[in-house]
Design a binder for these strands. Structure first.
Lengths: 125, 125
DNA sequence: CTTGCCTCTGACGCCAGCGTCAGGTTTTAG
DNA sequence: CTAAAACCTGACGCTGGCGTCAGAGGCAAG
């Protein structure tokens, strides 16, 4: 008979989350305001997070870099928060995937273009 | 003895540039304001462009998508306008290339992450 | 001439993701 | 105990690439 050990329940405050994820404290508060990140509160009102808030914030950054808005992200959060996803959400996921893929293609084209320019200016000073 | 024929000197107006490049008229005016695009003027004050303004505007769009600001682009324009480039400009070109490359890498990582999520939500409805 | 489309110059608006300042409470280190 | 560091809630500011409205002039066609 084993006891259910809640795997490290130590809660951390906002500064630690921010440093851990490499963003500002202001940014973390903003994410909460946008409904991306829910925090418990200490009796005195300070935000308390679980450690997995750090990779979550990193994930947000990744999605922002991918051009998703906080609204979009919040709409898609249930997809990995809970296990259940409806057809609409999966369609949104795929749509965002397509957008991202074509964006990468565009950037690759821009990179190629830039490389051409570099090659010319190097061999042709 | 041949005569130097200025290869199709027909000038076009701003609307044609905009339609040709797939941007708004307002955008083209904005590029001029930012020093990206210089236009001649008709006696009545209308902007007149050469045809190569169209691929140029497309190029701007590509660079914007790559995250370059109009200021950066204007600083780098001499690199392919004239043939001459100094060491500083080539360094800037390379720096932007690096930024762009790492940005593409980030986006690729985001795409991979998104694909994971899609795989999970598909096999695990 | 006039109709209708194109162009012009300002100048304000917008959006997203924060930065930043103000003014106050809480936690921690010595 | 006290000072410093960290946290809190507003609320305004900023940036960039345009959108958009206002009011006025230019230009080919019928």
């Amino acid at each position: 008979m084993t006891v259910t050990v809640a795997a490290d329940e130590r809660l951390i405050r906002i500064g630690e989350v921010a440093r851990g994820a490499g963003v500002s404290v202001r940014a973390v508060r903003y994410y909460e305001q946008q409904g991306l990140l829910i925090a418990e509160r200490s009796p005195s009102g300070q935000r308390l997070y679980r450690q997995d808030a750090i990779p979550l914030v990193r994930f947000f950054q990744q999605m922002f870099a991918a051009g998703l808005t906080s609204r979009r992200i919040s709409e898609l959060l249930p997809c990995w928060d809970s296990g259940h996803t409806d057809a609409e959400q999966r369609a949104m996921l795929r749509a965002e995937r397509e957008r991202l893929q074509s964006k990468i293609d565009d950037l690759q084209a821009a990179l190629d273009h830039l490389d051409e320019v570099i090659a010319i200016t190097d061999t042709h000073p």
